[in-house]
């Protein structure tokens, strides 16, 4: 991107203007995410930088909104902070409960999506796979079909899942199972996409070599294939987890009062009255996503090194 020595003045001006434009677009991309971090430490219930904050006065900053995340919903938030207070917080605080739900649902949805998705990606990458294109289109479609249509469909189906067979058998709405199944569906396209992308560079002769040396298909899979595609599998799993961890529409339609997740709790907060406590949650989520992003980047480089692609 270096400017050639023979560039005319006009080209020089354009070159620097172009760099400024790019810088502005990067600011547009990242600034909105980063701006919530300082604002979440605001001592006042406002959404702008107060004069005290701008002059870096410590009195302008506080952890009160983080504290309110713990106390909101507790039976006795003002009691002295002893063992009983923490027990109360762990059991009753709305955001803590939501976090527990998000992690439980996210864990099971990720597990299901990753196992089923990886198996399917292995099948889809085989040269002998019949109706490959059509099946791939179906498996990717949960990412394409508008979430509101998926959620309404599931809302009716899960309120009486056996109706298609002509009888009644309980319901899956307001259960953890229902939300886990919905989130699994939403996570599957990401697992398929990342794992098939890893398998594109996969050398099939390694499998044949293992087989010719007497390894059973199962042994070949666990000792040869899986270690090589593991980076793809893990980043697929992380995608699936993030999808579940950020999903609100299916939860709005399917969840009961006991299955409130973090996004659902945020949704309520944003719709009713937005307080800086939401910004505290947002900050925590941004930190989590920075961690996940780093993990995925490291995995991707490892995968490319393993497959002998261009070293970076």
């Amino acid at each position: 991107m270096a400017l050639p020595v023979h560039a005319s003045p006009l080209e020089r001006i354009w070159h620097y203007a172009y760099l400024v434009i790019c810088a502005l677009i990067f600011v547009f991309l990242v600034a909105p995410i980063l701006v919530v971090i300082p604002l979440s430490f605001n001592a006042e219930p406002y959404f702008t930088f107060t004069d005290k904050m701008l002059s870096l006065d410590p009195a302008g900053y506080s952890l009160r909104w983080y504290d309110s995340l713990l106390t909101f919903g507790m039976l006795a938030p003002d009691a002295p902070r002893d063992g009983a207070w923490y027990a109360d917080m762990w059991r009753n605080a709305a955001w803590v409960k939501a976090a527990k739900n998000s992690i439980i649902v996210g864990f099971w949805a990720t597990l299901l999506a990753t196992v089923l998705g990886t198996l399917a990606a292995l099948g889809l990458s085989r040269p002998d796979m019949p109706w490959r294109r059509a099946i791939m289109a179906i498996l990717i479609s949960p990412m394409i079909v508008p979430i509101i249509i998926i959620a309404t469909g599931m809302f009716f189906f899960y309120s009486n899942p056996c109706s298609i067979l002509g009888f009644e058998c309980g319901r899956l709405t307001s259960t953890y199972t229902g939300i886990v199944l919905a989130h699994t569906i939403l996570g599957i396209p990401f697992v398929i996409i990342t794992v098939t992308a890893t398998l594109v560079g996969f050398d099939q002769s390694l499998n044949r070599a293992a087989a010719s040396l007497g390894a059973s298909p199962r042994r070949t899979f666990f000792r040869i294939t899986l270690p090589l595609i593991l980076p793809g599998v893990i980043s697929g799993a992380l995608f699936a987890f993030v999808t579940s961890f950020d999903e609100v529409v299916a939860v709005l339609f399917l969840a009961g009062a006991d299955q409130q997740t973090i996004p659902r709790q945020m949704w309520n907060g944003i719709r009713e009255q937005i307080s800086p406590a939401i910004l505290a949650v947002a900050t925590i989520l941004v930190v989590i996503s920075i961690g996940l992003l780093t993990t995925v980047e490291l995995l991707r480089r490892r995968s490319e090194r393993l497959r002998g692609m261009t070293p970076r």
Binding site: I33, I270, I274, A282, L293
Partner: peptide, 20 residues
């Protein structure tokens, strides 16, 4: 990384930031 950070950040977080 600057492009991928928004990609990995919760949609609700991004929407909230813009509201702010």
């Amino acid at each position: 990384i600057l492009v991928l950070l928004p990609f990995w950040t919760s949609l609700l977080v991004r929407t909230t930031s813009w509201m702010v």
